[in-house]
Simulated scan of single mutants.
Amino acid sequence: MTAALPWPLAYTVSGDDCAAPVPLGYAAPLAEAVRHLAELGYHGVEVQVRESGAHAAEALARTVEAAGLQVLGIGTGPVAAQDRLTLTDPSPDVRRHALSRLSGAARLAGALGVPVTLGQTRGTFLPGLEDVQRAWAERSVRQLAEEAADHGSRLLLEPQSRANTSLWHTPEEALAVVGSLDAPAGLVLDTHHLDAEGVDAVRAVADHARVTGCLQLAAPGTRGPLATGDQRLPALLTALRSGGFTGWLTLEHTQDGDSRAAAARSRAALTTAAAGPT
């Protein structure tokens, strides 16, 4: 692993099926992005997909592995962000379409042997429909977790801020869902969403490291690239180590107009924090 980091280091990228590059990922076509990230010393990528299924696994793996990287996870943000499909939409057709897209991503993840993540595609509540929408989401997440397990993947549920979704904002809320499932599942923790919900990120990582498959990182406040000297980074790395974390780290943040510079800056900040005092 990179300079004292015992876990794979990934960057968010857009799959070729995305309508546009995801704003929190490398702003380039996939083949270009993975080539640049390999040159910068990354180990892998977390690929955000919109409509890809298992049929796309071979081509995706070939593109990423040609650069010397690995696919570490499949993300599903564009299903909601680009096509407005969610599991809590009042329209049954939209809900079915959303679950179909997510199930395709789970099958893709299974073909690649990696987890699939779920964030904002669970949706938001409308006044008076909260209880029924929660039931829709819970039923769909159970189906998605089973689909992932049946195809050799594992669902990772991401606690997100209420600006993104009406459901499961804290690690404890997400863990209650994970614990209710009949299939293996875990968490994605994202420092931006933890901050937005007033959750201490270091404490959350320390408490939930073993059930967390991925930690997503961004600078506090700005959600931009990490900065060398950020005093929280050494504490987060210590919490991961002491908590027995066995997943991967993903840089998921704004690009500040230059993805290559943003990726280089974040990697340098992390490796400096991992190296300890000089």
Rank of each mutant, 00 (worst) to 15 (best):
A10L: 11
T12E: 12
S14V: 10
D16I: 00
P23N: 03
G25H: 07
V34F: 05
H36T: 14
G41F: 07
G41E: 06
E51A: 15
A54G: 14
A54L: 08
A56C: 11
R62F: 04
T63M: 06
V64P: 01
A67G: 02
P78V: 08
P78W: 04
Q82G: 11
L85P: 08
L85A: 08
T88M: 14
D93T: 14
V94S: 13
L102Q: 07
A105G: 13
G113Q: 07
V114C: 07
L118R: 10
T121F: 00
P127T: 13
G128E: 13
E130D: 06
V132T: 15
Q133G: 13
S140T: 04
L144F: 01
A145L: 03
L155G: 05
L157H: 05
E158Q: 12
Q160W: 06
N164D: 14
T165F: 10
H169Q: 06
T170H: 02
G179F: 03
G179C: 05
A183I: 09
D190T: 05
D190M: 08
V202H: 03
R203Y: 06
A204N: 12
A204T: 12
V211R: 06
T212Q: 05
G213M: 04
G213W: 03
T222W: 00
R223Y: 11
G224L: 01
P225C: 12
A227G: 00
T228F: 00
L233K: 05
L237G: 08
A239S: 10
F245C: 06
T246V: 12
T246P: 02
G247R: 06
E252Y: 02
E252I: 03
H253C: 15
D258Y: 04
R265H: 05
A273P: 10
A274S: 12
T278N: 03
